[in-house]
Design a binder for these strands. Structure first.
Length: 810
DNA sequence: TAATCCTCACTTTTT
DNA sequence: GTGAGGATTA
């Protein structure tokens, strides 16, 4: 490999790289141009790592150091993969074709489908998502009566998942387990049976996709060599989030090619045996990008050591540190640095920005989560009026349940919002049902799917019938699916017999459409067609249409959307088969539709926020027991991971950062007192502009100072409390500052009413239960979405959804 | 077999 | 407060 020149003049002709290197700082330039076996790019938040990674790839292509087919770039989400591909294409155009830019899982699926027959699977294997595997484990836990030992399906699932992430299989675990412990024995049995069931169903779970690929490479070195020869440049993004199995996969792929063997890629498919003496090729060049301060997935098996010990694992590795942040103002970064600096055993890193100090961080303490939410809504509206689009604002929280209060207030305040993440489209029951129908066609060996649809819609087929079908299948050596073709031999009543026959016929009809036996190639739209046939003729649609449950209407819409997804797939992949479609669906999560729908505020957990950025960010619920979460206290490294999570949250902000909390929070049906998060006090007080500090709220009424006094050594110093707020002069902190509502015009209750068709016009005066009296300035919107723009006498400007606002006309 | 009542548990989750 | 899943009943 030739050493790339560090600086290429912009006029260097067709292979010139000047534009690729333009505008890079020296560290970025080094990260793009360094050539060697291994490179670690430590990329602080907002340091332009995506740009560096894409330019690095583009430069490799532009300078003809690598063919596209020799590049494997790995990201964690399909969305990130898509963006990276787009950006590389933007830089080098057509020359980007043929690269593998994908997630770990997609890359492994591609490999496994190609090699499946090597180890007892077929190309059309199913991918079990965590719901599928939980369902299977649940059955096994029941069969083995493992619940008697306190094992729940989800605990077993997470244990198995952890073991697989460590590349430990059932056999390996059994070898070192204490088999005199009955609980251990049963767990081993469940694990073993689980793996056996997967194999029998021709299925892999998510963890298997990685682990089995590693096992494949280890068991069949010549297969591994094929890929080692092919991929000369491997780049991994978000390396701090890799688990052991992923690490091992990378390790396998970057080993030197072990022996002279046929190379199908270099020989036009002809088998050419090189002489034994052929020099083995060196391992692929590896580039990893990551930031250990943003490692927030240890709970999923991510191993921070992968990045912290990179230099040991890959001797001779070069390390480049990107510390200049191009995203945030210095105040935000100073807060972030101060917080993360409290984590010990991290490599020092100091993000800096040349954007100037910027605005101070805004702090707010509400009485309740509603109060806090109202603050967020008000602030969002103020920013909107100042010209910031909603799509540039985001609200983060630690747990999904916190979104509820925010939603309630946002609806009432007519703030358009969008929840990111949350219940996933592909995890909805009706979508899983539709998928199960498709899987029943594509992989009849997969009993789970067939069992799932057996009685959906209701056909009168219950447990008893299911068991007899299973028994019949067992006795005759058939799959569960094939047993459906012999309803008369099942010993069930005529009604049920007919129902089974009908299901069998529907499946057969759909199979004929999507996978014609004659070997002819099904049309591009066959998946959408087959899906429609399945849903129509199985009676699934009909049962939803006939239902009186209002939720079933939404289910129908979801199914329509799913059919639309299938049509889109056909359009984008004219050659795409049913298996391709199912693969895409299994590996694509909703996180991939994170596209900012322009014009709405984004609500999401701090985990989901990683990798995103917004002009204005609201981090809510900055309280003890929430961030850091209560449960994290018991886990090793828990509090530190929580701190990183908080760090990720605040480093998403470009210009404005808001930190808010509530003094009381209703959780699990009861209201409890919340305390400010310890992380708040790690931020230098002069960086925060408290609109309402914890001190303000506490010093009112009977529960004064509870949160502040709860910490020994806390209290006030230098005329300012620890939150940087001056105590009001002339008043004793222990006495109520004010007992009237005027100081807290935003205090909000969570009542909802129905005003029906209350007529309002500009100029009317109204009284609001929480905000007092005000004057209507304008009314916009139609019907149930009519919005009153009100200027309240003491609570300021607000928008209200008229239908549900607690208001009366005066 | 299906509907209904009751109990329980309740972080985060790129695939 | 809520939703899922299990046990109980019709």
């Amino acid at each position: 490999m030739t050493e790339a020149p560090l600086i290429v003049p912009p006029s260097a002709g067709p292979t010139g790289a000047g534009d690729l290197l333009a505008g890079l700082n020296p560290q970025q330039l080094a990260a793009v141009t360094y050539r060697g076996p291994a490179l670690l790019i430590v990329a602080g938040a907002g340091s332009g790592k995506t740009s560096v990674l894409t330019r690095r790839i583009a430069l490799l292509l532009r300078q003809r150091e690598a063919w596209p087919s020799q590049i494997l770039a790995i990201t964690f989400t399909n969305k990130a993969a898509g963006e990276m591909r787009e950006r590389v294409e933007g830089l080098v155009g057509e020359a980007a074709r043929g690269m593998w830019i994908s997630t770990f899982h997609s890359a492994c699926v591609r490999i496994l489908r190609r090699e499946a027959e090597q180890f007892g699977f077929t190309k059309s294997f199913t991918i079990y998502d965590s719901g599928d595997s939980r369902a299977l484990i649940k059955r096994l836990v029941k069969e083995h009566e493992a619940d008697a030992f306190g094992m729940t399906p989800s605990s077993v699932q997470s244990r198995i998942s952890k073991l697989k992430n460590e590349l430990t299989d059932a056999e390996g675990y059994a070898r070192q387990a204490n088999m005199s412990d009955p609980a251990e024995r049963i767990f081993v049995d469940v694990f073993t049976d689980y793996q056996r069931a997967l194999q029998k169903a021709n299925a892999f779970d998510f963890d298997d996709l990685i682990a089995q690929t590693v096992f494949l490479f280890r068991a069949f070195p010549q297969v591994a060599d094929t890929y080692r020869r092919r991929f000369r440049h491997i780049l991994v993004d978000e390396y701090q989030d890799t688990n052991h199995a992923q690490y091992a996969l990378i390790h396998e792929l970057t080993r030197p090619v072990s022996a002279a063997a046929p190379d199908p890629y270099a020989s036009n498919g002809m088998m050419i045996f090189e002489p034994e003496t052929a020099p083995a090729e060196p391992g692929a060049s590896l580039t990893v990008v990551g930031d250990s301060d943003q490692s927030i997935y240890a709970f999923r098996g991510a191993d921070i050591r992968n990045i912290s010990e990179f230099e040991r694992d890959f001797p001779g590795a070069q390390v480049v540190l990107l510390e200049q942040n191009y995203r945030s103002t210095q105040n935000i970064l100073s807060a972030a640095n101060a917080v993360i600096g409290n984590n010990f055993d991290r490599k020092a890193k100091n993000l800096w920005s040349d954007k100037g100090a910027g605005d101070r961080i805004v702090g707010f303490t509400g009485y309740s989560q509603h109060d806090e939410a109202q603050f967020v809504a008000d602030e969002v509206e103020a920013l909107r009026r100042a010209g910031m689009p909603y799509s540039e604002m985001a609200v983060f929280y630690r747990t999904n349940s916190q979104s509820r209060a925010l939603e309630e207030i946002f609806i009432r305040a007519a703030v358009p919002y969008k929840i990111m993440g949350g219940t996933k489209f592909y995890e909805r029951a009706e979508i899983k049902d539709a998928l199960a129908y498709l899987v029943a066609v594509s992989n009849p060996a997969d009993d789970m799917s067939v069992r799932r649809i057996l009685n959906k819609p209701r056909r009168g087929i219950g447990d008893v019938t299911e068991t007899s079908i299973a028994r019949f299948a067992e006795e005759h050596g058939l799959s569960f699916r094939d047993a459906l073709a012999h309803p008369s031999q099942l010993g069930v009543g005529p009604k049920i017999r007919a129902a089974i026959a009908r299901l069998d016929a529907v499946l057969a009809e759909a199979t004929a459409i999507m996978q014609p036996a004659s070997g002819e190639i099904p049309s591009a739209t066959s998946v959408a067609e087959g899906l429609t046939v399945l849903l129509e003729k199985s009676g699934y649609y009909e049962s939803l249409r006939a239902s009186r449950d209002p939720q079933d209407e939404a289910r129908l819409e979801n199914l329509d959307e799913f059919v639309a997804v299938a049509r889109d797939f056909a359009r984008n992949n004219p050659e795409g088969t049913l298996v391709d479609f199912l693969t895409e669906v299994a590996l694509v999560s909703d996180a991939d539709d994170l596209d900012d729908e322009s014009g709405s505020v984004s609500l999401m957990t701090m985990h989901t926020a990683k990798g995103l950025e917004y002009d204005a960010v609201f981090v809510t619920g900055v309280e003890e027991d929430l961030i850091p979460h209560r449960i994290s206290a018991g886990e090793p490294g828990g509090p530190q991971e929580e701190r990183r999570l908080f760090y990720v949250g605040i480093t998403r902000a470009r210009k404005r950062l808001h930190l808010s909390l509530a003094m009381t929070r209703a959780q699990f049906g009861e209201v409890s007192v919340a305390m400010p998060s310890r992380f708040l006090q790690e931020i230098p007080a002069d960086l925060i502009d408290w609109r309402q500090s914890p001190g303000d709220v506490n010093s009112r009424g009977g529960m004064q100072s509870r949160a502040l006094n709860a910490r020994p050594g806390g209290g006030f110093g230098g005329g300012r409390d620890r939150f940087g707020v001056k105590p009001l002069p002339g008043r004793d902190q222990l006495k109520p500052l004010s007992t009237s509502m005027d100081k807290f015009p935003n205090k909000v209750t969570a009542k909802v009413r129905d005003n029906g068709d209350l007529e309002l016009t500009a100029g009317d005066r109204i009284r609001h239960d929480d905000f007092g009296e005000g004057r209507i300035e304008a009314v916009t919107g139609e019907g149930a979405k009519r919005i009153a723009h009100v200027r309240f006498d003491s609570a300021g400007q607000k928008k209200l959804l008229i239908k549900i606002a607690p208001i009366v006309k005066l």
